[in-house]
């Protein structure tokens, strides 16, 4: 392991986000060549993309297949891990609060360790014309279960849904910050860094799903810009998807009004657009499924 004695969420996430940098187990190459660089050539720098359209969309597609960043996953994990509590640790209620928790935390008699601070707001309103349910889990925390698996979060996960007697259903959610639960082997197990908002409406005249924001997962970075799924488009969205090349350049796949997941792709500011495709239907399905909670 090239990073030793790392602990807590930061360390876990750092390793997760580090990708395969140390997977070969070899010593890192930190030797520097002698430098004869001159400042004169610095102004001529121009980044060149490392990936083609196919490579870029393949990487993004692989990332999408790791799953949609459903805020319910870390929320469910959090609530589940609270079951390892005892009478004293981590205290009353479902939030981690106080200076002691922020500075070292506590270890319950079950062996579970709780550390950091959280805010948890849960609403469940029913009986009226409109049924509303929501949760919002925010904070900066780490929970280690008795087997040593860790859930760490820095940011906020929220979700809400309302159902009207008319049959109209509206839902929304947000995934922001960095989160990891290393017991899992999906997107949350790998560790996610994101600022994603999504929403949906169904049951009325205007069924629609939306997705916006940025997502970093498994070394791939994308930004969803005004993605919208509407009826009659074979579950393909409109909008655009931006993807980051390893060089640091960003590219844009403009899905426009097409209904096949394809569109004009180009590196920002460079070259002519070319055709590329990205299958976002699984994300649409995942957002739609969240309307059934």
């Amino acid at each position: 392991m090239c990073v030793s004695r790392m602990r807590l969420g930061a360390a876990v996430l750092a390793l997760a986000l580090a990708g395969s940098a140390c997977e070969d187990g070899g010593a890192p190459d930190t030797a520097l060549p002698a430098s004869d660089a001159d400042a004169d050539d610095l102004g001529d720098f121009a980044a060149a993309p490392e990936w083609s359209a196919e490579e870029m969309t393949a990487a993004a597609q692989a990332m999408l297949e790791l799953g949609f960043p459903n805020p319910k996953a870390p929320y469910d994990a959090y609530m589940s891990l609270l079951s390892f509590r005892d009478e004293v640790c981590p205290g009353e209620g479902d939030q981690l609060v106080g200076q002691e928790m922020a500075q070292g935390g506590c270890t319950a008699s079950t062996g579970a360790h709780y550390e950091g601070n959280t805010t948890l707001l849960v609403t469940d309103e029913s009986g009226g014309d409109v049924e509303r349910r929501s949760f919002s889990l925010g904070g900066d925390f780490l929970i280690e279960d008795p087997e040593g698996y860790r859930l760490a979060g820095g940011g906020g996960m929220s979700y809400g849904i309302s159902r009207a007697g008319s049959g109209q259903v509206d839902w929304f959610g947000e995934s922001a910050g960095t989160w990891i639960h290393d017991r899992r082997d999906d997107w949350l197990g790998l560790g996610i860094s994101s600022t994603v908002t999504f929403g949906g409406s169904a049951g009325g005249d205007n069924a629609v799903l939306t997705l916006d924001g940025s997502l970093g997962l498994d070394g791939v970075y994308v930004q969803f810009v005004d993605l919208t799924w509407r009826d009659g488009c074979d579950a393909y969205p409109q909008g655009s998807v931006r993807m980051r090349d390893p060089s640091g350049l960003w590219s844009t796949l403009d899905l426009a009004d097409r209904c096949d997941g394809c569109g004009a792709w180009s590196i920002d500011g460079l070259g002519e657009p070319t055709e590329a495709c990205l299958d976002l239907r699984p994300y649409g399905s995942a957002i739609a499924e969240l309307g059934t909670w």
Binding site: L8, G9, A10, L13, A14, L17, G116, G139, D140, A152, G153, G154, G155, G177, T178, W179, I180, S193, S194, T195, S214, L215, G216, Y221, V222, Q223, R244, G248
Partner: peptide, 12 residues
């Protein structure tokens, strides 16, 4: 949050 502050976030 150390989880937020320790790593670079290219997607942002």
């Amino acid at each position: 949050s150390p989880t937020e502050m320790t790593s670079y976030h290219a997607e942002r």
